[in-house]
Design a protein around this nucleic acid. Structure first.
Length: 497
RNA sequence: GGGUCGCUAGCUCAAUUGGCUAGAGCAACGGACUCUUAAUCCGUGGGUUGUGGGUUCGAGUCCCACGCGACCCA
């Protein structure tokens, strides 16, 4: 045995469990049976028999199954607390009822999966229990669970071994469930509005649709370097060219950048595109979808985030980025100031200025540093500079700005939307400007995508587009302040390099 | 990328200025117990103190490098 399981046999705690596994087999029992027929989940028993008075014995025979979370032995009477996905139920096990298999209870450890059949009863103290006539080990655990009271607290261990976190920390299970509700409600909202859910390629020969560094991989048969997508935008807009009027996609995108409390290299985005809509229409869409998601996930639009109350009830404030920055600088139209003046203003406020930045980028940097952190209630920040928005159409009233908004809540960005740029010649000019930035050393600049330009040249109708960062949204609704708390398996360095 | 802090038993944590054989609770093992709720009681075992070097009579503690992580800043 020791030769077959060296790591487990090496440690006293796991060796003891291996020995029990052998004893289970020697007793003619299967430690990993294929099937157990259960009749009730714990929550169903509590719902059906929750009002039984103490000391009741019923004739109702039920079968339950779950993981052993607590085990209390009084010699000839044993209490076992089983946990399934719905909650906990106590087993009442005594030799009179269960017979010879009572002795096999000593082979059961905390963490094992157990199935039990018996009659519903309450103890003298009133605890709803199953008085066991038969039970079976459904899966023998070979490693000890974390402390049954203190649990698992180390954030690294909780992320690396999420299954343990989920076993012992109910909060972690709640966040995972909340995330699922958010995603399904998002889907429901767009489906209900007649949007077509589509899938676009993750592997691309060019990574566009956002300003970010991509992951590179290699296709062997084609002998071709490929990129993991950094956005779904350009393919979804090709579908609008193709004649679909409302499309959306919820999917993972990948950005090759650092990991911190709001960034994971792979994260989940929702993007939607609607023909004949402009960014004002999209803002109204967001004002409908966001409260609906909050209602579905939490039952309310009035939430608490970082200890402060926050209302997601529309309407949301609308304000132009250049007005917010202008207020800060005491000028009227900051994007018309010359670059040097803006660079000076930024530097004076402690912002590290890159010599490659133009006036537009400087305005946006000033906004990000000076204004954004102060925006608590949901706010649509409108009309970004052309320089930083290569896929948004020029503003109908100001050619230096675009028809774009970002939704800010609690100091962070939650949505990004534009009236899409559908002028193929302007789009080409914007790509070329990005190419110059790339040549100047900006490796996040957008590449020139000839295939996308060709699609635009066939004509894309006026279109409104939207992107929502799903992970951030879950963080907001779950009141979690680190992205790894809302991603079940966040990106981590390997433990043993 | 920079700074600060952390890494001790399966889990949660101790260990005084560098000084006895690195302790405790849970978990494990042995025993008692037919109404517990983190059951209780008695007893036992369990450690390469993240890794590798160094200083010292003596290192969990001090120094250096590396690994993994946390927080803050860019």
């Amino acid at each position: 045995m020791n030769d077959e399981h060296p790591p487990l046999a090496d440690h006293p705690l796991t060796r003891a469990r291996l020995e029990k596994l052998e004893r289970i087999r020697r007793a003619g029992l299967d430690p990993y049976p294929v099937k157990f027929e259960r009749t009730h989940r714990s929550a169903e028993l509590h719902a059906a028999f929750g009002d039984l008075p103490p000391g009741t014995e019923t004739d109702q025979v039920v079968s339950v199954a779950g993981r052993v979370r607590l085990l209390r032995s009084f010699g000839r009477l044993v209490f076992v607390t089983l946990e399934d996905a719905s909650g906990r139920i106590q087993l009442f096990v005594e030799p009179n009822t269960v017979g010879e298999s009572f002795d096999h209870l000593e082979l059961v450890d905390l963490g094992d999966w157990l199935g039990a059949t018996g009659r519903v009863m309450t103890t003298r103290k009133g605890e709803l229990s199953v008085k066991v006539t038969d039970y079976a080990i459904l899966a023998k655990g070979l490693r000890p669970l974390p402390d049954k009271w203190k649990g698992l607290t180390d954030v690294e261990a909780r992320s690396r071994r999420r299954y343990l976190d989920l076993i012992v920390n109910p909060d972690s299970r709640r966040v995972a469930v909340l995330r699922s509700k958010v995603v399904s409600e998002l889907r429901r909202q767009f489906d209900a509005r007649g949007y077509l859910e589509v899938e676009t390629p993750v592997l691309q020969t060019q990574a566009g649709g956002a300003l970010a560094r991509p992951f590179v991989t290699h296709h062997n048969a084609l002998d071709l370097d490929m990129y993991l997508r950094i956005a779904t935008e350009l393919h979804l807009k090709r579908l609008i060219v193709g004649g679909f009027e409302k499309v959306y996609e919820i999917g993972k995108v990948f950005r090759n950048e650092g990991i911190d409390s709001t960034h994971n290299p792979e994260f989940t985005m929702l993007e939607s595109y609607e023909a004949f809509a402009d960014y004002h229409d999209i803002a109204r869409l967001v004002e409908e979808v966001l409260p609906a998601v909050a209602e579905a996930a939490l039952g309310t639009t009035e939430i608490t985030y970082q200890g402060r109350p926050l209302s997601l009830r529309p309407p949301y404030r609308r304000v132009r980025m250049v007005d917010l920055v202008g207020e800060e600088l005491g000028v009227k139209a900051p994007h018309r100031l010359d670059r040097e003046r803006l660079a000076e203003e930024a530097a004076r406020r402690g912002i590290a200025v890159d010599p490659g930045w133009g006036a537009g980028k400087l305005v946006e940097e000033l906004f990000d540093h000076l204004v954004a952190p102060r925006l608590w209630e949901p706010t649509f920040v409108l009309d970004h500079p052309v320089e930083t928005s290569p896929l948004a159409r020029r503003h109908r009233d100001d050619p230096d700005l675009t028809e774009r908004f970002e939704l800010f809540v609690a100091g962070s960005e939650y949505a990004n939307a534009f009236s899409e740029l559908n002028d193929p010649l302007d789009q080409r000019a914007r790509f070329l400007a990005q190419a110059r930035a790339r040549a100047g050393g900006d490796d996040e600049a957008h590449p020139v995508d000839e295939d996308y330009l060709q699609a635009l040249e066939y004509g894309m109708p006026p279109t409104g587009g939207l992107g929502i960062g799903v992970d951030r949204l879950v963080m907001l609704l779950a009141d979690r302040h680190h992205i790894r708390e809302v991603i079940l398996f966040p990106t981590l360095r390997p433990e043993d390099p």
